[in-house]
């Protein structure tokens, strides 16, 4: 059974204006998405700025009020606050944020930052608590000397690792990682991603990995969904998305990644221009009159694409 099941999730924000501040329209931030996360797996959400990927993450953890739809965790409905409390949901689901500095309290020492979730959910004695915090710091490669430092004394990569340690301190089943490495340099990004993968193997955690970096998602995720304008345009396994993309938007996104193979750059650039041209001419076929992404069609067991009906063919 899947760990998390999101069913037809919608998050709409009202736009109010006029004398009585009446609602006259909505922003469709997330408009009917469904997906499942398997235990111990990493699910990727890819999209550009404003596509609604962060909103999905925030509504799963309960920071965003959902308009309609259902979120099932371990088979239980956790769509409202009351239901979440009953399920120990706040202990089982944790989050890693993009900006490590603003997500750590600058006035607290690392020891207290990591111990805070433990104090909320587990009754540990002082020595047990200390032992546990040390253990957690050790799993992310930080030592005992770091226990009583403040967040500003660390580099960006170390701070992000502290964020990871805090997130796993309550032994969660699901960690929502919202752009965890976009603010980091390449070599530091590698460190953080390695730790995330090791921890996943060790504790059997599922990740919801939200990112705009297609290279990182390909590295981390087994299955993924591409978002555009609040809806999914394509979802499938790594192989489905990167080797057999079918939606014009996915193709365009993949073509836009700069490649490090210098000798092929002219060919790559030509390919990108061609895809861009096709996107401009054929875009209207892939979206309905109001610019909404079409409903998903299944093209194989794992692969669904928002294609116009006449284009659906098996693989």
């Amino acid at each position: 059974m899947s760990l998390v099941e999101v069913k037809d999730l919608k998050v709409h924000y009202p736009i109010r204006s006029g004398f009585f501040n009446r609602i006259h329209d909505y922003v469709y931030a997330v408009d009917g998405v469904s997906f499942e996360i398997e235990p111990g797996q990493t699910y990727g959400l890819i999209g550009e700025t404003g596509s609604g990927k962060t909103t999905i993450g925030r509504s799963i953890i309960g920071l965003e009020k959902i308009t309609s739809g259902k979120i099932l965790f371990d088979g239980h409905d956790v769509s409202t606050r009351h239901e979440r409390k009953e399920q120990h949901y706040n202990r089982d689901v944790q989050m890693i944020f993009q900006d490590s500095l603003s997500s750590l309290n600058p006035k607290k020492r690392i020891y207290d930052i990591i111990a805070e979730p433990l104090r909320n959910f587990e009754k540990l004695s002082d020595t047990e608590e200390k032992h546990r915090v040390r253990e957690l710091l050790d799993t992310v490669g930080l030592g005992d000397d770091d226990l009583f430092k403040y967040p500003f004394e660390f580099s960006g990569g170390q701070r992000q690792r502290i964020g990871v340690a805090r997130a796993i301190s309550t032994n969660p089943k699901l960690v929502i990682a919202d752009e965890p490495v976009s603010a980091l340099d390449l070599s530091v990004q590698a460190q953080v991603l390695n730790y995330m993968q090791e921890i996943q193997k060790q504790f059997n955690i599922s990740y919801l990995f939200i990112s705009h970096d297609l290279g990182v998602v390909r590295h981390m995720c087994d299955s993924m969904a591409i978002m555009h304008r609040g809806r999914f345009v394509e979802l499938g396994t790594r192989d489905d998305i990167y080797n057999h993309p079918q939606h014009i938007y996915t193709k365009r996104l993949l073509a836009a990644i700069p490649d490090i193979h210098v000798d092929e750059r002219d060919a790559q650039r030509k390919h990108r221009k061609e895809v861009e041209k096709v996107f401009d001419t054929e875009q209207s076929r892939y979206y309905d009159k109001n610019g909404r992404v079409l409903p998903l069609q299944k093209v194989s067991e794992t692969h669904s694409v928002a294609l116009p009906e006449d284009q659906v063919k098996g693989e």
């Binding site: 170390q158 070599s187 530091v188 590698a190 390909r218 590295h219």
Partner: peptide
């Protein structure tokens, strides 16, 4: 060479990435 090696590669997804020691 270390920087180029730490880029996630298309042909080895999921493998351990090369990370430069220290900072």
């Amino acid at each position: 060479r270390s920087l180029l090696k730490s880029i996630p590669q298309a042909d080895h997804p999921g493998d351990r990435l090369y990370a430069i020691e220290g900072s």
